[in-house]
């Protein structure tokens, strides 16, 4: 276990270097001139040239990469080209907002998806399973902004239960804040429920049909006892790694959901800075999202390893 953790932690810097190279290479691909893009079509050639020097764009790419990476690692993230504020404040602020939304979605997702997966798995090949499986498949395939729009039409336009914008007013009470976050969170939950439930269902079917579950039933335990004592843990433990993958999906889904609900999160920031060609903001945002994703996957793997005694204690040599 400790060796696993050390190995995985050691791999992180390696992957980060690769990720940063990718991000930097991507931002280098920009056709045309960043300085020109910032100043606009009418700006004079000399003004553009001056801005290029000011931004350091006249130096070789390799130098800029090393400078940028060094700056990123030491927390000097620079200023936004367009918003003229420190990137660090901007990104951390937006990250916090996004994490709040993601957390709410996650908290809703886990019980719903696990319950649905268990119900489907225990009743596998029966009507309940088919309904859950097909519904999960349908919802999981639908882009989050589509479900978001449909939720908006139903709950905001027709029923007028919830606000259409996710922007939380500064003086909002926690309940009001929750109201604002509920629809965007729900669109993310709907997106991810199907996949997670599918994994839980599969491991539940395996557990229900396992020799140990059958043996327990043959010993005179009731179905409910077998499910509670043997199926639950064996079905949910493998699903933790599926949850990790889904969290990635959830992070990817933030972009469209934040745009749809006008939510000031990191996904919206990524999109905006990309459109504005705001390089420092864009590079940092992409790096932060990449790191976040890596940590999520690592976390899921660690949780899985802690929960499963076979992995935790190592497989006995035969």
């Amino acid at each position: 276990m400790r060796r696993f953790l050390l190995r995985r932690l050691a791999a992180i810097p390696l992957t980060l270097v690769a990720v940063s190279a990718l991000v930097f290479a991507a931002t280098e691909l920009i056709p045309g001139d960043v300085a020109r893009a910032i100043l606009g079509r009418e700006a004079s050639e000399s003004a553009v040239r001056a801005l290029r020097v000011q931004l350091g764009l006249d130096r070789p790419a390799a130098t800029r990469y090393v400078d940028w990476l060094g700056g990123f690692v030491t927390g000097r993230w620079g200023d936004s080209y367009t918003l003229k504020v420190p990137v660090r404040d901007l990104v951390l602020d937006r990250l916090g907002a996004s994490l709040l939304l993601a957390l709410l979605a996650f908290v809703l997702l886990v019980p719903v998806a696990v319950t649905l997966g268990l119900v489907a798995g225990i009743n596998h090949d029966r009507p309940a399973d088919r309904v859950i499986s097909v519904t999960g498949l349908t919802f999981g395939a639908t882009p989050e902004f589509v479900t978001g729009v449909i939720l908006l039409v139903v709950f905001s336009v027709k029923l007028r239960w919830l606000p259409a914008s996710a922007q939380i007013p500064p003086d909002a009470s926690p309940v009001e804040a929750l109201n604002h976050l509920l629809l965007p969170a729900l669109s993310l939950v709907i997106l991810c429920t199907g996949y997670v439930a599918r994994h839980v269902r599969a491991s539940t079917v395996t557990a229900v049909e396992s020799a140990y579950a059958r043996a327990a039933e043959l010993r005179g335990f009731t179905r409910a006892q077998v499910v509670r004592r043997h199926v639950l843990r064996n079905a949910t433990v493998p699903a933790t790694s599926a949850l990790g993958v889904q969290l990635q999906f959830l992070l990817g889904g933030l972009v469209a959901v934040e745009l749809l609900f006008n939510y000031p999160g990191i996904g919206a920031l990524l999109l905006q800075s990309a459109i504005d060609k705001d390089l420092p903001t864009l590079q940092t945002t992409a790096m932060v999202l990449g790191i976040l994703y890596m940590l999520v996957v690592l976390g899921a793997d660690v949780v899985y390893r802690v929960l499963d005694p076979r992995v935790r204690l190592g497989v006995a040599a035969r």
Binding site: S210, A211, A215, H230, N234, D308, R310
Partner: peptide, 12 residues
């Protein structure tokens, strides 16, 4: 049954 390993709950 045969394969006793599978008749025991791996998490208990």
């Amino acid at each position: 049954h045969q394969e006793a390993g599978s008749a025991l709950d791996p998490t208990m």
